[in-house]
Simulated scan of single mutants.
Amino acid sequence: MDRQPTLETERLTIRPMTEADREPLYAIASDPMIWEQHPIHDRWKRDVFDAFFDEGIESGGALAIVRKSDGQILGSSQYKGFDPDDGGSIEIGWTYLDRSCWGKGINPEMKRAMLAHAFQDLATVRFRVGDTNYRSRNALEAIGAARTERYELAKYQGKRIVHLVYEISRDGFENGPLMRG
């Protein structure tokens, strides 16, 4: 599966993230409200963001979300964690969008394109989300992702972080809310 495709939707171009996107994306990520429910709640800080951005570039799966009408960068998302077993799966995540996009259907539009691309080759898409990140959990449920029994534990700044694992299957996507809406 190509983890850095260029995808087109009605309003968006989703393309590989490049070094030139660092400053426009930091302008978005520097808003602390974007990260307030996120387990790594300080990505608005320059040094934390730069490490996050660098990791995304190095991963080979980072994407920039661009508004077609004016070329403005609206945020970023990533494909990571390819697993070839059981028909293949990948994780979509590390998504953040400018607050001006919230409630405007940008996230579902972007996720529909990313999921459609993944399901050309794979059977399952996973999402990991912090257990207290209710905004992201609600967004995942709205696109038809189901919470699994799995979870992951990690630490950040000496505190325990719990990530819940959500999934959507190819069939769940094809018959789910993103394809009906």
Rank of each mutant, 00 (worst) to 15 (best):
E109C: 08
A27H: 08
M110D: 04
R46F: 08
R22K: 14
F49K: 00
Y26S: 08
W94A: 13
R170N: 08
E109F: 07
L63F: 06
L140Y: 01
N133P: 12
L115K: 00
Q4M: 15
M110A: 12
I14C: 11
T95N: 03
I40T: 07
Y134H: 01
L12Y: 08
I40E: 06
S76E: 06
R147Y: 12
G158A: 02
Q78D: 09
Q72P: 07
V125Q: 00
E174V: 12
S100P: 10
G158D: 04
Q120H: 10
I168R: 00
A145C: 12
A113T: 05
I40A: 03
S136W: 01
G130S: 01
A145D: 01
R15V: 14
I168G: 01
I143V: 08
G144E: 03
L122S: 00
I65Q: 01
A62I: 09
F53E: 01
I73G: 07
L63M: 09
L25W: 02
R67K: 14
L7S: 07
E167G: 06
F49L: 05
S169Y: 03
F173G: 02
Y79K: 02
R147H: 10
L178D: 01
T124A: 02
K155G: 10
S100L: 14
A113R: 03
R11A: 10
R160G: 12
A51E: 04
H38S: 09
W35P: 08
R3Y: 04
Y156R: 11
G130I: 02
E152I: 15
D47I: 11
D21H: 04
K80M: 14
K45C: 12
V66M: 12
R22H: 12
G56K: 01
E141M: 13
M1N: 08
N175I: 11
G75M: 08
V162A: 02
W94G: 10
S30Q: 12
D171E: 15
T132E: 09
F82V: 10
N133T: 03
P84S: 06
L97H: 03
P39A: 01
L12E: 10
A20F: 09
M179P: 04
R99I: 14
I143E: 00
A64E: 04
R170C: 10
F173M: 02
L7Y: 05
R126E: 11
P5G: 10
W44A: 13
D42C: 07
G60E: 00
R147I: 13
M33P: 04
L12A: 09
D50M: 06
T9G: 06
L63K: 02
D54N: 11
L164E: 03
R99D: 11
D85A: 14
E8V: 14
R147V: 14
R137A: 07
L178C: 03
M1S: 10
